[in-house]
Each structure stands twice: as structure tokens, then as C-alpha cells.
Nucleic acid binder design. Structure first.
Length: 675
DNA sequence: GAAGAGTAGATTTTT
DNA sequence: TCTACTCTTC
């Protein structure tokens, strides 16, 4: 195998793939065959007789995890059920699923996403009788996150310590509801390892070989977790590229590369600098751009390939012209150069930019796939279903309970809720607990009718809870539940004059149910419990339609990391978009200069996704929220040498007046002919 | 307790 | 433009 491997990899790649023992730092430039090295490295381990269950590969996104697992399977040619390839967050859930009771939590915990978190903060603020008007949730959540991940303390000068009571309230509510937020998924396993060394020992014994991909984007917490696990065997391999660090706003810290060098001084370092992906032109442009960043490891990415075509920059009139241009180009490329749709990608800085482009793609019947953005799972009707499932799994989950308690309307209104909240607050129980107490109480403060309504609701929960917890026929049970609560009737009632909307929503509910069914019937799925399903969808979102080939990819630059395409369009290459205006504001993630460097890295990531051809578009005008803004080209364009980029003249559009005059002229001409 | 009208605010990136 | 929340009325 090893000789064969030698012919498949270049010397540095070979080194990286075959050095299995001891700490290893791989600095892998864009397109240097990083994924290839990792997958071959895992294969090499298996070939050397290392047990698949001893291998742990941690990635940053679910997409990366899926892809890595898929490629290894393909290389090895068999299924590897004991191999752990997972994101940090999912791995955290896995650990907590087994051991969370040691930390004083109950099983079947809920995981709160950003929206749930927001609702909970709102709830807490209400309870503290704070005015919601001036409460900035973004600020709250980022502060809470800093405190929780111990990046900051309340006494730190940059921290708004007036939020501390709210934080305490938030924390105690989560405990009461048995609900974890994303930060907990990393933080609690660390606590567990520190408080229960025997558990840590168990994991160290199992995972003898650890690999971390996209290491430049790990947070201090994730690094800590990784270090705890690796400190037994010290067979730890991290792969990263400081030039592609684009998540500092989420606590990613590329100082981790330095920390790694400090904590594992015996490490071996390998640099992969040959780029196999892009043409010379693209690489040259990217290198010139990134050179402007001061805070980076020196690297010289080179390619043996030829120059390739110049980068083209177009300046359409506005975002609609931009969408039309991109679609025209895609159709031409597909027709004349036989480029497959799935080898083309349109990259955008913000999700909001997707809409206009999506509309045009749709109008032309161009098949496309959109990654990220407002997820299917955030649609109100789907969220209802999720909340039902969550409540059945964990009735103490107040945030979900609040959502479904009166959806469809069952007479549990504001007044009743007030009573329940009061009771729950004074007794330190969840709303569900309060409901049970109210029904049992003799001197109940609520009316007979409301009491009967609550009873009905509790009955519903106790009827379906065992069905859902049985782990069998989940979709079937959910369908029964939907019928029982007459959700269709509810939808029709909500949209009295619009059956189409109601039907659309019902279709989404059905889509959701069948996605659950598919997941549960998947033979590779070893434990199809509601709990696992819920975790999966909050952590991973909708199943990517990876199977659906032949579609143009539309996504943010962030979600394009790690991917490559023959042709890449970058839309909205304008000042205030790339770099993004709000990202530059000095904030707790960094200074203006640091943020500018991160935006530059982001643009670098975007450029280096392209293999053959890059098109950039910079609109002259753009509709931002309601008003039309005049736009200028991104300052990053100037950092790319002129000879590499072909800047087209701005498109001129016929103004309405000119068009009018033209038609008048034509009319006269025709009139003249008729005479 | 429910429904409808009216109003204010919102778009940076993801687990 | 759209959504989420508040206020008013039935």
C-alpha cells in the first residue's frame, strides 16, 4: 500500500499521510490537497491495523464531516460504523447523551438554537420586569457566549455587567427546562472531563488517534476539549491554514496554531504549498490579495499548472441586471462549453443577497441548490412540528411548550398562561409542571373551562409521549398526532381566504414528516430515537441534497469553505459588502484592522474556490432594504494586479426617458411610412 | 379569549 | 418588503 500511496501523493502529502504517531501540524494552503491527505491518512491507519473505533476526526461543519466520512468509505470500499467523524458540536452531544446525568442534568435534553435562545432571553427579561424596548438581543447573546466560553469575565472592562442578572436567570431557566445552548455542547463536556477524570480516561482509552480539520477555525473551547482528549496518546494531527480563518466572530482563534506549538513542542510540522486546484491566474490574484495581511504565517502557494484565463469583472447597473448577467453566463457556459451546472457556484457575502439571484434562476428554470439561509426548519409550520416533538421528548422545555400550548387554539390563552407562569415561577417548576399542579389543585385560581382545556392538553402529551419515546414508527405517530390536533383545520383557519398558502404549509409539514420517516428507515441509522432526530436537525439543518447533481450552487462564502468549482461567480463585490460594512465595526471580536484582515481572508477563500474561471460582479446601484444605494467597487479589487483581471466598462442602461423618446421616434417613423 | 389592524424594525457570517 | 409584536375591538 505504501508504495502505491507514494505514487498518489507528493512528498509532503506522503509525509503527512504516513506519520501517524505523535503530534503533527499540517499547514495546508488552499487547494493543496488537504482533504486528500486526511482521507488517505485515515486509510493508512486502517491499513496498518489501527482499529476504526480508535480514530476520531473532528471537523467544523457537518458538510465537511459528511464529505470526509464519504470519501474514506469510498477509498476503503466498506462501511465503517465505528469510525467517528463528526463536528465538535455533535461530538459534544454524543458525550453528553451518555454522561450528562453526572453533571446534574436529565436525559433527553433539548438543544436551543439561536431563535430559541432569543425567545428564552425575552422570557427571562419579562420575568425580571426589564423593559424589552432597549434590550439588544444580539449584544446579549454575544456577551452570554463570551462569559460561558470563559473568553471574558463579568469584571472585564469590555463586558456589560448590567446583563449579569439576566444571564443568571437565563442559566437557571435552561437548567429548569433541561435545555442546552450551542456553547453548552462544548463547555459541558469539558466540565465533565475535568470533574470526572474517569470519564475522560474512558475517552482517551478509546480515541488513540485524533485529527482536527480546519484547525484555524477552532475556538479556545474546542481547542481545550481536543487537548484534553489528546493528552493521553498525544497522537494528534491538526490541519489548517491561517489564511482561511474566517470565523473569529464566533470565537475562532488562530492563535490556536501557536497554542498547539506550545502545548505539543515535540510536534512535526509539514507545509503543503503546491496548489492543485486553481489556474496560475487565480492563484496569483489570491496571493497578491492575501499578501496585504500582516498577521499571517509566511507561505508561498504555487502551482505547476498554466496561466489560465483572466478574471473578469463586470459592472451591471443594479442587482437585477447582475442576476440576469450571471444567469446568461451560466446558460452560455453550459451550452457552449458543456460545463455542468454542479461545477458552477455563485458566492455571496450575505444570505440576503441570495434572493434576487434565486428569483432569476427560478424564472429561467435553471436548476439550483441553495445552501444555508433561512432553513426549512425555521418555517413556522415546521417549527410547530418540531416543538411538538421536543415537548413530547422533554415536556419541561418551556420554549417549545409555549409555542404549541395553544397551537392549534385550544383555549389556553393569556390569562391562563399568566396563572401558570406565576405558579411556575413561585414553585420553581416548568410550565408543564405548573399545568399538572393546576389540574390537581383543589383551590385552583383558574376557571373550570380553562382547567378542562389544560387537562385535554396534558392528556394529549401523555398519550403521545410513550409512542414517541418508544423509538419506533415515529413518523407514523407524528402523522397520528397531526390528525388528532387537526392541524390542517388550523392551517385553513389561519388563512381563511388563501387556500394556496394553507396547502403550501401542509405540504411542508408532510415534507417534514417524510424526512423523519426516511431518516428512521435508513438501514445505516442505528438508533432512530426522537432525541437523535431532534439533535440532528438543530445541529445539521436539512439534509443537503448531495444526491441531487446537476444543479448550480448558490451559497455564502462562509459555507463554500472547503469546496471547489470549475467556475465561480462572486456577486456583490462592492464596498460595504466585501468587506462588509458591519463586520468592520470595531467589536469584541477585533479591531478595525483585524476585521479588515478577516474580510480579506474571506475574499481570499472566495477566490480560491475557483479551479478554471472566475467572474466578479460589482453593481453600480443596489437596493438595500428599501432604498436605492449607489455602490462602488470593493477596495480589494485594487489589490489584484491589473494584468490578471479584465475590468469591463460599466454597463449603461437606457434610462426611462431615453426609452420613451426612442419609442416616440419610432412611432413617428411608422406613421410616416403609413402615410 | 380571539381576530384584525396598525406599527416599528430589520439584514453578517454558523454550530 | 416582510415579519413580529402591540393595541383595539368583538
Amino acid at each position: 500500500m505504501s508504495t502505491q500511496l507514494k505514487s498518489l501523493l507528493n512528498p509532503e502529502q506522503y509525509e503527512a499521510a504516513t506519520n501517524l504517531e505523535g503530534p503533527l501540524l499540517i499547514i495546508a494552503g488552499a487547494g493543496s490537497g488537504k482533504t486528500r491527505v486526511i482521507t488517505y491518512r485515515i486509510t493508512e491507519m486502517l491499513n496498518q491495523g489501527i482499529n476504526q473505533s480508535s480514530i476520531l476526526a473532528l471537523t467544523f461543519t457537518n458538510k465537511a464531516a459528511r464529505e470526509m466520512a464519504g470519501r474514506v468509505k469510498e477509498l476503503v470500499g466498506r462501511k465503517l460504523p465505528q469510525l467517528t467523524v463528526s463536528t465538535f458540536h455533535s461530538f459534544g452531544v454524543q458525550i453528553l447523551k451518555k454522561h450528562i446525568t453526572l453533571l446534574g442534568w436529565r436525559e433527553n435534553f433539548s438543544i436551543y438554537d439561536t431563535n430559541d435562545q432569543r425567545s428564552l432571553i425575552k422570557e427571562c427579561a419579562r420575568e425580571l420586569k426589564w423593559s424589552l424596548e432597549y434590550l439588544d438581543f444580539g449584544h446579549c447573546m454575544s456577551t452570554f457566549s463570551r462569559i460561558k466560553t470563559r473568553r471574558s469575565k463579568w469584571s472585564d472592562p469590555e463586558i456589560d455587567d448590567s446583563l449579569q442578572p439576566l444571564y443568571e436567570e437565563y442559566q437557571s431557566h435552561r437548567k429548569l427546562y433541561n435545555a442546552l445552548d450551542f456553547d453548552d455542547l462544548i463547555r459541558l463536556p469539558i466540565d465533565l472531563f475535568q470533574q470526572h477524570p474517569q470519564v475522560l480516561e474512558e475517552y482517551r482509552k478509546r480515541y488513540k488517534y485524533i485529527m482536527v480539520d480546519e484547525f484555524q477555525d477552532t475556538s479556545i473551547q474546542q481547542y481545550e476539549m481536543m487537548k484534553l482528549l489528546a493528552d493521553g496518546s498525544r497522537n494528534i494531527c491538526v490541519v489548517g491554514d491561517d489564511d482561511q480563518s474566517i470565523y473569529s466572530w464566533r470565537g475562532a482563534n488562530f492563535d490556536n496554531i501557536r497554542n498547539f506549538e506550545r502545548d505539543f513542542p515535540e510536534l512535526r510540522e509539514i507545509k503543503l504549498e503546491q496548489n492543485y486546484r486553481s489556474t496560475g491566474t487565480i492563484l496569483d490574484a489570491a496571493n497578491h490579495l492575501i499578501k496585504n495581511n500582516k498577521n499571517r504565517k509566511i507561505k508561498a502557494l504555487w502551482t505547476g499548472g498554466d496561466g489560465g484565463k483572466p478574471i473578469e469583472l463586470y459592472q451591471p447597473q443594479d442587482e437585477r441586471a447582475e442576476a440576469r448577467f450571471i444567469c446568461d453566463m451560466i446558460q452560455t457556459l453550459n451550452l457552449k462549453e458543456q460545463i455542468h451546472y454542479h461545477d458552477i457556484s455563485i458566492l455571496i457575502r450575505t444570505n440576503a443577497l441570495a434572493r434576487g439571484i434565486e428569483e432569476e434562476l427560478m424564472a429561467r428554470n435553471l436548476p439550483y441548490r441553495i445552501t444555508g439561509g433561512t432553513s426549512f426548519f425555521e418555517r413556522p409550520e415546521v417549527k410547530d412540528m418540531i416543538s411538538y416533538l421536543r415537548c413530547l421528548a422533554n415536556p419541561d422545555d418551556d420554549i417549545s411548550l409555549l409555542r404549541i400550548m395553544n397551537t392549534p387554539r385550544r383555549g389556553i390563552g393569556k390569562k391562563t398562561l399568566e396563572h401558570m407562569t406565576e405558579l411556575a415561577q413561585s414553585q420553581g417548576m416548568s410550565l408543564y409542571g405548573a399545568m399538572q399542579a393546576l389540574v390537581l389543585a383543589n383551590d385552583s385560581p383558574i376557571g373550570k373551562r380553562a382547567r378542562a382545556d389544560i387537562e385535554d392538553f396534558l392528556e394529549l402529551i401523555s398519550e403521545f409521549r410513550p409512542k414517541l419515546l418508544s423509538g419506533k414508527d415515529l413518523a407514523q405517530s407524528l402523522r397520528a398526532l397531526i390528525a388528532k390536533i387537526d392541524y390542517w383545520g388550523h392551517l385553513v383557519g389561519e388563512h381563511p381566504n388563501n387556500e394556496r398558502v394553507a396547502k403550501f404549509k401542509l405540504r411542508n409539514v408532510e415534507l417534514f414528516t417524510s424526512s423523519l420517516e426516511q431518516w428512521e428507515k435508513d438501514p445505516d441509522n442505528l438508533s432512530p430515537s426522537v432525541f437523535n432526530y431532534l439533535n440532528r436537525i438543530t445541529l445539521a439543518g436539512k439534509d443537503d441534497d448531495d444526491s441531487e447533481e446537476g444543479k448550480v450552487n448558490l451559497m455564502t462564502i462562509h459555507s463554500a469553505k472547503g469546496l471547489e468549482f470549475d467556475v465561480v461567480f462572486i456577486a456583490g463585490v462592492e464596498e460595504n459588502i466585501i468587506p462588509h460594512q458591519r463586520s468592520l465595526e470595531e467589536n469584541d471580536a477585533g479591531s478595525y484592522e483585524e476585521n479588515m484582515e478577516e474580510e480579506r481572508r474571506l475574499f481570499y477563500v472566495a477566490l480560491t474556490r475557483a479551479k478554471m474561471k472566475l467572474y466578479l460582479t460589482s453593481c453600480q446601484q443596489r437596493k438595500v432594504m428599501r432604498d436605492l444605494m449607489s455602490m462602488t467597487m470593493s477596495p480589494f479589487i485594487e489589490e489584484i494586479p491589473e494584468k490578471l483581471i479584465d475590468i469591463k466598462e460599466p454597463d449603461t442602461e437606457i434610462s426611462e426617458e431615453e426609452a420613451h423618446n426612442y419609442f416616440e421616434l419610432m412611432k413617428k417613423k411608422f406613421a410616416a411610412v403609413e402615410e
